[in-house]
């Protein structure tokens, strides 16, 4: 059996759901960040699969490139925020981030 569109989409779905669960359950700020990366990756798998198997053509791949670049930017900023948060609170437990002041 050659891999078809559905099998790629199922892999993407698993990655997406794992990312969502990871974002929801992890209390570590960086763990939440890893969940975001997984979600974006699930979306990327779908983009690439659609670009191969449907009339979407090259646009899917360009889109996934943009997703990758923006995910890297997002990770950099989020990491800077996490480090800042750690400097102020000496932990990166996101549940402790309940005060809207420095």
């Amino acid at each position: 059996m050659q891999p078809d569109l559905t099998s790629y989409l199922l892999v993407g779905a698993v990655l997406f759901v794992c990312g969502v669960v990871c974002m929801a359950t992890k209390r570590n700020g960086i763990g939440v960040l890893m969940g975001v990366e997984l979600v974006l990756n699930g979306a990327n798998v779908n983009f690439v699969a659609f670009s191969k198997y449907t009339a979407l053509g090259l646009d899917g791949q360009v889109f996934s490139l943009f997703v990758i670049v923006l995910a890297a930017a997002e990770a950099a900023v989020a990491l800077a925020i996490a480090l800042n948060f750690y400097n102020n609170h000496l932990t990166i437990d996101v549940d402790r981030a309940n005060k809207l002041k420095g």
Binding site: N41, V48, A49, K52, Q61, L65, I68
Partner: peptide, 15 residues
Amino acid sequence: LADADFVAAAQLLIY
């Protein structure tokens, strides 16, 4: 495998 070698390499390099 999905013929997106540039995207794959970008994924490896950036991610």
